[in-house]
């Protein structure tokens, strides 16, 4: 992992579905402050869950946690949560945009949509985590991140609450890391060591 501290990272993506909430809640309290990138979280859920999610994340970290808004600048030190029932896309000028097109693999927000557009814009300077889930969303997106030269991390399916999503991704690509949820915050903190 040490070598990755030399990497320029401007954006960290975390995507997951069933069983991923607990992983994110484990990562957040261990994140250092002042890391030089933004974090975007895409998690599948019912729309009714909406407002509680940013509050819940906000209660576990000193980072600014907010729901992603359309046309908003992506700023370091901020955690953006994809709103329920919209796809969250990344624009060329590093702003966010929302999209209400068809669900992808029964999902909106779709992890693939955010990962793919982020890879397209941030290229090598993105790191993407794919966590537990009962759905194949995220594999294509993670593959796009890898092809663009970004860093890819998949939660160890052996410990994932639902291993389907990690396994689907592992069938499609060999990530840079297969990590336990206990190691993820450590890696994110390392990525911010560069400056």
């Amino acid at each position: 992992m040490e070598k990755d501290s030399l990497r320029q990272v401007d954006l960290v993506l975390i995507g997951g579905s069933a069983g991923s909430l607990e992983v994110i809640l484990r990562i957040l309290p261990d994140l250092k402050y002042g890391l030089p990138f933004a974090i975007i979280i895409i998690i599948h859920r019912k729309s009714s869950f909406e407002s509680t999610l940013t509050d819940l994340f906000g209660s576990r970290t000193g980072w600014l946690v907010k729901e992603a808004e359309e046309k908003e600048d992506i700023l370091p030190g901020t955690i953006y949560v994809a709103p329920a029932d919209y796809h969250l896309l990344i624009e060329d000028d590093r702003t966010l945009s929302l999209d209400f097109s068809e669900k992808i693999l029964h999902s909106r927000p779709a992890i693939d949509a955010t990962f793919q557009t982020a890879a397209d814009v941030y290229k090598r300077s993105v790191a993407a985590f794919l966590l537990s889930g009962a759905n194949a969303d995220g594999s294509a997106g993670l593959h796009a991140v890898q092809k663009a030269g970004g860093l890819t991390i998949i939660q160890d399916p052996e410990e994932a609450e639902i291993k389907y999503m990690p396994v689907q991704a592992l069938n499609k690509l060999t990530p840079d890391y297969i990590l336990s949820k206990h190691k993820m915050a450590e890696l994110i903190n390392l990525l911010g060591n560069k400056g």
Binding site: D92, S97, D99, D120
Partner: peptide
């Protein structure tokens, strides 16, 4: 139009 969505479509 917003480019990211257009490109996906």
């Amino acid at each position: 139009y917003s480019k990211a969505s257009l490109k996906r479509r």
